[in-house]
């Protein structure tokens, strides 16, 4: 799949919109769970959507190092070779 980092970020922001109930403004530094007030179960649902969108696996272990949107974009971008 040839996607660039910007596309990765755009898709992730789109998917995140469904979980952003309070309409928090998203920046690369947004802490996905804490700033958007998403509970642990929904974090996993969101990540499964990301995995399906890019056809990649993100293991729980890798996820434990990810807090911000930028970190998630980095991880996915690396995985899809963007």
């Amino acid at each position: 799949m040839s996607v660039d980092r910007q596309q990765v970020e755009a898709t992730i922001r789109d998917l995140l919109a469904g979980y952003n109930k309070d309409g928090v403004e998203l920046t690369p530094e947004t802490d996905i769970a804490a700033d958007l007030n998403i509970d642990s179960a929904d974090v996993l649902n969101f990540v499964m959507e990301v995995e399906d969108a890019f056809d990649v696996d993100i293991s729980l272990n890798e996820l434990s190092d990810v807090r911000t949107i930028a970190q998630l974009v980095d991880l996915v971008a690396e995985r899809v070779g963007a």
């Binding site: 996993l44 499964m48 293991s59 729980l60 272990n61």
Partner: peptide, 16 residues
Amino acid sequence: IFDGCRLSGAKVVLFR
């Protein structure tokens, strides 16, 4: 099950 996975140090992948 989640905690056992974490304890194992294995790579953990979720499915729906």
